[in-house]
Design a binder for these strands. Structure first.
Lengths: 142, 142
DNA sequence: GTCGGTGCAAATTATTTGCACAAGT
DNA sequence: ACTTGTGCAAATAATTTGCACCGAC
């Protein structure tokens, strides 16, 4: 399925959840569908302004909060102050952050997650969610 | 070694690194040595004020930054806005955060770290540091 | 005595909110 | 129509910084 269709799907799902699909929300959903990276609120605001300059930063923040509550996006607090977002769907994964460029690479390891569960259980806990971030730099071949 | 002695050791090490051991810094180092938990700047400020009310919040922040640069403490950005600190030393470990109480439990898994390295390597990266946080709640026995 | 450190208040940065008006259903 | 959403500007919250004085070495 292409990105435009995916964006429409999200709209439908939100509409069903009783969320009004306003112009700013359409624009933001489209941006989130099209992006490959993990933009922060200001970045989303900038991209949104190119499509519709009347959108405000407040609306971006309010929409991100709404989408997070509805489970449509995930919020990350990587190093560096601002929160960064990515659309949900596409399965759970963790992140490897390039400390030189800020690039984010997604990965997933069932083995690590199994070990996490084991550890939590042995400490008398049940994991609700977790955060695994690897910070590193490109290995130069020798 | 007891906590007071440990605190003195930190003082010596910092002094050798060319850091002046002022009254506020002594107080903050002592607090960090004595604490079992992971306090934020405001909490450290409050505890410091009980020992010496003339200490300012700015100094707490400045000292935390200094100690972090010197490698004497680690800064964590657990959920909930403010940064939290813990003294370094005592070996690397990760954290399990109780989402009901905010309590932090430390743990370490060589197996997970080995897997992390493996994953990073396969992606062409070298890990500089990582962050693994498990958020969960106490398991009730059945 | 010198230079780095401190307290205080003001500045920054990221995010949130009150309000009057606009727009989705 | 009714209610929710929006833009704007002002409010918060966490942290940082400029400046004149103070204290560690």
């Amino acid at each position: 399925m292409n990105q435009a269709a995916q964006s429409k799907d999200y709209e439908e799902e939100l509409r069903r959840a009783g969320v009004r699909i306003t112009r700013p929300r359409q624009v933001i959903l489209r941006i989130l569908s099209e992006t490959e990276d993990h933009p922060d609120a200001m970045e989303i605001f900038n991209r949104a302004c190119e499509i519709d300059p009347s959108i405000s930063l407040s609306t971006v923040y309010r929409t991100m909060k709404l989408l997070e509550e509805k489970g449509a996006i995930h919020r990350h607090a990587f190093e560096g102050g601002r929160a960064r977002f990515e659309q949900a769907g596409g399965g759970h994964h963790d992140h490897l952050i390039d400390i030189d460029t800020g690039d984010v690479i997604e990965f997933h390891s069932g083995k690590i997650e199994a070990l996490q569960d084991e550890i939590a259980r042995s400490l008398g806990y049940e994991i609700v969610y977790h955060k695994l971030e690897l910070y590193g730099r490109k290995r130069r071949r020798r």
